[in-house]
Amino acid sequence: MLKAEQITVTFGGVRAVSDVSLAVPAGELLGLVGPNGSGKTTFLNAVCGIVPARGSLTVADRPVRLGRPNAACRAGIARVFQAPQTYGELSCLDNVLLSTSDRRLLGLTGAWPARPAMWKRERARWAFAMSALETVGLESCALEPASLLSYGQQRLLELARALAGSPSILLLDEPSAGLNDAETAALAALLGAVRAAGNTLVVVDHKIDFLDALCDRLVVLELGRVIASGPPDQVWRDDRVISAYLGVASDAEH
């Protein structure tokens, strides 16, 4: 589904992400791990066009222009941020509706001359958005302003918004951060269900157990480079991964 080749992001003289190549087949749930500063979030930013990057990116075999949030969005890349980015002044339903994949009659013509047609589409969009809210369990707050939600709920709202766009691939950045064990378990169940519904996901997280239980495959980054890739139990046995996580110098071999 997603194929990234030699993605490189440079800040000043520092290569935050260096020649990272990654392929995520449709329906996979890929975990992206690595120590702090290994470039996980920057890689996600590059993929969804927020930071300028070099390399090539395709989604469903179609090339995506790097550095353009609009282009990434159109290609079906959806993103859930670590700090929830919701519109506090809009209702939860409105937040979800923003990312609708039905793009017809959203402009001024829909607002006035073509209203009946717009309402017809709008009702379909509402139904779809409500089902996304139901998926994450927020259907009861649909008409409340998003600012009234708790931190964890706001993250769920953002997930619902991402899902409502029927994305080709969903990028999640530290979805479990700040959640207690019970909440983390619920989130794992939710993501499992989302994946079972046929979505393709890339999840960045620090909680190893959470990812191990969820992912088919892990990719480990260190200092902006891929150092290991494979099923969780295999990856955790990799010497380079162990040394990266334990902080042992890799020249111990000598």
């Binding site: 949030p69 969005c73 519109y87 506090g88 409105d94 923003l98 609708t100 009659l105 829909g110």
Partner: peptide, 30 residues
């Protein structure tokens, strides 16, 4: 209306609006 929804989102956070698929060009023209 969906148009108003997008304007409100753009007013609150233009960068974020672009990521969530708000059609900035269409909204600007309107």
């Amino acid at each position: 209306t969906p148009y108003g929804r997008q304007v409100r989102a753009l007013a609150a956070d233009p960068e974020m609006a672009r990521l969530t698929g708000v059609r900035t060009r269409l909204v600007a023209m309107g």
